[in-house]
């Protein structure tokens, strides 16, 4: 079963420019890969996704970016909500982020833990799949 939770407040525009900052970027022509390494931060609208390593997957006709694969411990912040996971697959064209590997979603009111989370940036909703557990903080109003 899955829990769908509003995430990140206002909707993000899918065609907004994506900005990636990192320490290093290696573009190799042989296998057509481009890999950002060294505290990489992907930003679009008010969403920030940071990870130590991000690999770029080109579109079929090599004219742009199709997906960004972040790995090695990912944190995603949007508005006052934040999510952490081991890996994140950000489909730039569709505006969908799929985070896998003990996902921890912390929102002002509650915290959710699950194996996998699908985040729709445009609609601003997060869908948690797998074993979803809620961590209640007694005493927090």
């Amino acid at each position: 079963q899955g829990t769908s939770v509003p995430f990140g407040g206002m909707e993000g525009d899918r065609d907004a420019p994506v900005e990636v900052t990192a320490d290093q970027l290696a573009v190799s022509d042989a296998d057509d890969t481009a890999i950002f390494t060294g505290n990489v931060v992907i930003g679009q609208n008010d969403m920030r996704l940071s990870a130590p390593r991000v690999e770029v997957i080109y579109t079929a006709d090599q004219s742009g970016i199709s997906r960004l694969l972040a790995s090695g411990g990912v944190t995603l912040v949007s508005g006052e909500d934040a999510a952490e996971a081991q890996e994140a697959d950000y489909d730039v064209e569709a505006g969908i982020v799929i985070m896998t590997g003990d996902v921890l979603l912390t929102q002002t009111a509650n915290t959710l833990v699950s194996d996998r989370m699908r985040l729709d940036l445009e609609a601003g909703t997060a869908q948690m799949d797998g074993r979803v557990r809620t961590v209640l903080q007694p005493g927090r109003e």
Partner: peptide, 23 residues
């Protein structure tokens, strides 16, 4: 080994990618 040509951007990289403009 692979003889592939690699272009490495170092010392702080900033990329701006415009999804819609690439079409």
């Amino acid at each position: 080994v692979t003889n592939a040509s690699v272009m490495v951007f170092k010392d702080g990289v900033r990329l701006i990618y415009r999804p819609s403009s690439t079409d």
